[in-house]
Write a protein that binds this DNA or RNA. Structure first.
Lengths: 247, 247
DNA sequence: CCGGAGAGCGCAACACCGTTGACAACAGTG
DNA sequence: CACTGTTGTCAACGGTGTTGCGCTCTCCGG
């Protein structure tokens, strides 16, 4: 029998006249699915269901699933940068970008976890790159040093949200098991072999995810600031000893 | 019932002469495959081929592919910590751990990319946790602050090597495309809309991956140092203003 | 010394995945 | 009206992880 997703037979037939599917409609369907579902949410067949169309209809609008994914990701990342208020200093702008990115990762975990080591090369990616470069520039970095710290910050942020998103995709059982490990298994290790773990087992179990996020963001912000201070100092007093900023 | 908590029973019971497969043999076969192959290297059927056995034979020794993966990952991460020389300061020990982890990620990309947001809860993971905690302790952090910075460093490291490994797994075409984007597409953007990108396009294309790695590791090391300095200062002179480390 | 028990493996099959090629129905154009 | 190109449907292909069944062969108790 034709079309086993039955509710939609007549609809597809009649609406067949115009093109019922558009790239935007498909992208939005993916975002809807991603927002609802777990790790297996974004499959071609499920997307067909969501659209009330044959799964393979997508291939009329996107070369393959990967191209669709990148388009979806670009749309999603747009949300990360949207709500950033103007008039903030470069540090707070970077912090706001990080917070927005994390928000997106928690909203569309499937999409973010599949994209976090990719380059979309689309409109909104350029916007974010420009955004970070502007911050780095305002911090006082130039040329190769600015490029390096942009890449470091951007990659670090992407890695973090990708990691977070991927974790949220595991079965609740696996997630719970991983989290409980801190409270259960680490506490019962041999204190002779693992003195620090056993001593800190309570504190290890109590660490807050949000705090980890803040530490990692702050580490990158401070690193940018530190390197900016170094270059400006070098510019002011040319060629002293490379100041060894540690013990 | 098959023997799912591998190793232990086999060891106590006299070893069956007829059984050709052991958990260790399987783990090593996976490592061999992972070292050779790309993203599709670690499949059950390929593993069967490598072992010269039926693919499903694995399920007599591991509950499912995931349990096998975690065992393999634990073995692999052992290599990260093995070659770290004694007698280094905490900073250099953390740097050595990071370098070793990156080495492992490049050696077994499939394994690392599949594990980077997981917890193996196995022997060698505990060793690495203890290792980092010892460094953080030596840096001067205690209690909840030590736990927090351990988690931040560990997760950041895991995220980075996972991201790197995942990238190496893409088709060479995709990899080349992503890398070339910096040199090609970013250069042709509209300078009015993207002034920083176009101004720095040459430097962006020239950024070295190893430098990014160093920046990100150094950022975390510095953050640990910074927070350690704050707590010790707080301990020396209790409850002043939170010292804002200059704008 | 023998026979049952059960571990280890092979095989076929299942449900799912992304993707392709052939075909049908429609829109727009001459 | 006929033609052409676009878009949706459908069946099918090769891939994945996993399971149930049956065979073999080792081990252990009698």
């Amino acid at each position: 029998m034709p079309n086993r997703y039955n509710g939609a037979i007549m609809a597809t037939r009649t609406r067949r006249s115009g093109s019922q599917l558009s790239p935007d409609q498909i992208i939005e369907a993916v975002l809807r699915i991603a927002e609802r579902g777990g790790s297996d949410a974004f499959t071609v067949r499920r997307l067909g269901e969501e659209l009330g169309a044959d799964p393979t209809a997508i291939y009329r609008h996107f070369r393959d699933k990967d191209e669709l994914l990148l388009s979806v990701a670009d749309r999603a990342f747009g949300e990360a940068i949207d709500g950033i208020p103007a008039g903030l200093g470069w540090k707070d702008r970077l912090r706001a970008l990080a917070a927005g990115s994390l928000r997106v990762a928690l909203k569309y975990p499937v999409v973010v976890s599949m994209t976090a080591s990719r380059t979309t090369r689309r409109e909104r990616e350029f916007l974010i790159v420009e955004f970070i470069l502007e911050c780095v520039h305002e911090a006082g970095l130039e040329g190769g040093e600015a490029a390096l710290l942009y890449r470091s910050f951007g990659d670090a942020l992407l890695a973090f949200i990708g990691q977070t998103a991927a974790f949220r995709l595991f079965d609740p059982d696996v997630q719970a098991g991983d989290l409980a490990a801190w409270a259960r298994e680490y506490r019962t290790l041999d204190p002779a072999r693992f003195p620090h773990i056993t001593r800190l087992s309570d504190e290890l179990a109590a660490v807050d995810e949000q705090e980890i996020f803040d530490v990692r963001v702050e580490a990158m912000v401070s690193e940018i600031e530190r390197r900016a201070a170094l270059t400006s100092r070098r510019r002011a007093a040319p060629a002293p000893e490379e100041p060894s900023e540690q013990a």
